[in-house]
Design a protein around this nucleic acid. Structure first.
Length: 590
RNA sequence: GACUCCGUAGCUCAGCUGGAUAGAGCGUUCGCCUUCUAAGCGAAUGGUCGCAGGUUCGAGUCCUGCCGGGGUCGCCA
């Protein structure tokens, strides 16, 4: 059984069609006014406008038809043409049982499932991840979970930045420090040592060193650029170093991503498509899309309809090198030709500031026929800001490493848990640590996801790790409390059973449960995880109200007790399912 | 300068294709633990939706113009 809202929408839609009006006017949603109705339909007014008829008359006819529907208790017209609906207790009871017994906890599959690549573009080899990477990781991972849940075939790709100037910086800086390494002997062709010549700490030190020097010294910068060009041309020693750099970095990246419950199907990078670039450039030239300009090869992607300036795609720069325009295009080609099944859509979860870059790449990809332009989507997001409203920095003014952020969250979560002193006495060290870790991840992920994706937000660790308010830990606590109630009830021999809803608090809870599917699909369609966050928070709140208002396991009336236990179990199921989509796991107790 | 995002309660933010008295959280002030986790619940407080026009039965939402803030704008990714 699908959601009540969906059933009612279908019925109302049919009623509108029966009057020769569009079915879309029949959309039914939760009522804004719980004291007046369970659900409402506002379509009569829009339909009346479109058809030039009286809205109250249309609403009256629709309401009359809806009254005959099995789920409907009452249907009334109010105001200028609102249709207020109440559903029967029996309908709510059946819906609650449906949610409880459903593998998707009341969620629904999307009608337009697609093979979708999710590109997390951002993590760079040799550069430690910083707070900015938190968003791409968390938003991208949540989208991949939501899309899979809704039926999409998702292929996620971390898409490492392993092919730019930073590689040149690393190579040259390492050469300055250890000129004797075989990698720098141009005459030597291998084999190269298996063991990397650097550690992650070395990489973290070398890159900023070189980068700072290059900023101050143009000759130094050119050396790095030259090294990149040579690497791109295939110099064996440099390639071997690149492999080492990537391996060392990936090991480190996996720790940070792992802490946040973020995973990928593919650990590809820009360097993986290097071999495709000459052919790709040739294709652009053959197609007459590339032209030479100031010694560079560019693709003009501007359209007459453009209101803004649209710079061309830089296919090959004047030094013969290729930048990330070209590698992104080559990556699209690679995916279309080598992934199975063939992608139908690609989502790029990358900082909003790169919008123009992706617009250019998507146009070029469409022009060459790699994939239709409208199948490529930039899922941009805002920055993580400090208390001053500017991008988050450490006290010293540097960028905050993601690893340090994770540690800070973990420590703060542990501190709060200990300060509250609510953990069970018999809980051991290991379990306490596990709870703190789950709380920290819940805090970080939820606080990021609950913000509208496209806007900036202010990072406030104290607020995010709080158990009070709209936070990950609050949601986690709500779920744990339900588990505790159910566990204790079971120990007393009380188990959930047939649902027979009677109380207002019970009705409100089921009405909230009913919205899960729409929230998940809404989050997927708009690529906006905060829609799901909002639903889950409201669900947790509805449960807390229900919990405070009515006894559950302690209820003495058997029929009421099994109803409430079943409702509690349905909420637990949906909450855990939903939180899992956000990458948040719920401990057994806390 | 062009383009783009944003401006809603003291603070941080929701507000779906225009719909009923604009909603949460935090904060502040009151209540509520002899009952299932009070890390909770209930209530109160708090808004000229940046400003000015326009479209219409109806605008936080759509259009125009201003004001204020962030971001981007061919060889760094």
């Amino acid at each position: 059984m699908s959601s009540l809202a969906k059933e009612l929408s279908a019925a109302a839609g049919a009623a509108f069609e029966g009057m020769g009006l569009e079915a879309r006017f029949g959309e039914v949603r939760r009522s804004d006014k719980p004291e007046l109705a369970d659900f409402q339909c506002n379509g009569a007014m829009a339909a009346a406008k479109a058809a030039g008829k009286n809205p109250r008359e249309i609403a009256g006819e629709i309401a009359a038809k809806l009254k005959a529907h099995a789920l409907v208790l009452s249907a009334e017209v109010a105001g200028p043409g609102f249709i207020n609906l109440r559903v029967s207790d029996a309908a709510l009871s059946a819906r609650a049982e449906g949610v409880r017994g459903d593998a998707m906890a009341g969620g629904e599959k999307a009608g337009d499932a697609q093979v979708t690549v999710i590109d997390f573009g951002g993590a760079n080899v040799a550069k430690p991840m910083h707070v900015g990477h938190l968003r791409s990781a968390v938003i991208g991972d949540t989208l991949q979970r939501i899309c899979r849940f809704a039926g999409d075939t998702v292929i996620s790709d971390v898409h490492l930045g392993d092919w730019g100037l930073q590689m040149g910086h690393l190579v040259t800086e390492l050469e300055d420090e250890q000129p004797g390494l075989v990698y720098f002997d141009a005459a030597y062709t291998g084999p190269y040592p298996k063991e990397p010549p650097v550690t992650i700490e070395d990489l973290g030190r070398l890159y900023p060193q070189a980068s700072n020097k290059a900023k101050a010294d143009e000759a130094r910068n050119e050396r790095s650029q030259k090294a990149v060009a040579e690497m791109q041309a295939g110099r064996a020693g440099y390639r071997a170093l690149l492999r080492h750099f990537i391996d060392v970095s990936v090991e480190e990246l996996k720790k940070d991503y792992g802490f946040l419950n973020v995973s990928f199907d593919l650990w590809k990078g820009e360097s993986d498509v290097d071999h495709l670039i000459p052919g790709l450039v040739e294709r652009f030239k053959q197609a007459g899309l590339a032209e030479e300009s100031d010694g560079a090869w560019i693709v003009r992607v501007a359209k007459d309809s453009d209101k803004k300036e649209m710079p061309p795609v830089m296919l090959v720069n004047s030094r013969g090198g290729t930048g990330y325009h070209t590698t992104d295009l080559a990556t699209i080609e690679d995916r279309m030709e080598n992934l199975t099944p063939t992608p139908e859509r690609m989502l790029y979860v990358v900082d909003q500031r790169q919008a123009l870059h992706f617009e250019q790449v998507y146009r070029a990809a469409g022009m060459l026929g790699l994939i239709a332009e409208d199948r490529l989507e930039h899922i941009g997001f805002g920055t993580v800001n400090g208390p001053d409203g500017k991008p988050f920095k450490t006290r010293e003014g540097g960028v905050l490493r993601l690893a340090d952020l994770n540690t800070m969250a973990l420590e703060e979560a542990f501190r709060k848990i200990e300060a509250a002193g609510k953990l069970p006495e018999d809980m051991g060290e290991e379990e306490r640590f596990d709870v703190a870790k789950k709380v920290a991840v819940a805090a970080l992920r939820f606080s990021d996801l609950m913000n509208t994706r496209t806007t900036n937000y202010v990072f406030d660790l104290d607020r995010f790790t709080s158990f009070e308010g709209k936070t990950g830990p609050y949601l986690m606590y709500a779920a744990v409390r339900i588990k505790s109630v159910l566990r204790k009830a079971a120990e007393a021999g009380h188990v959930p059973g047939e649902v027979a809803v009677t109380e207002d608090a019970e009705r409100a809870l089921v009405l909230q449960l009913d919205g899960f599917g729409a929230a998940v699909l809404g989050a997927r369609e708009k690529r906006m995880p905060h829609i799901l966050c909002e639903h889950l928070y409201n669900l947790a709140q509805a449960f807390s109200s229900f919990y405070a208002a009515l006894p559950i396991a302690a209820e003495t009336d058997g029929a009421k007790r099994v109803t409430r236990l079943a409702l509690a179990d349905a909420v637990r199921h949906q909450l855990e399912t939903g939180l899992d989509l956000l990458g948040i796991t719920v401990p057994e107790r806390m």
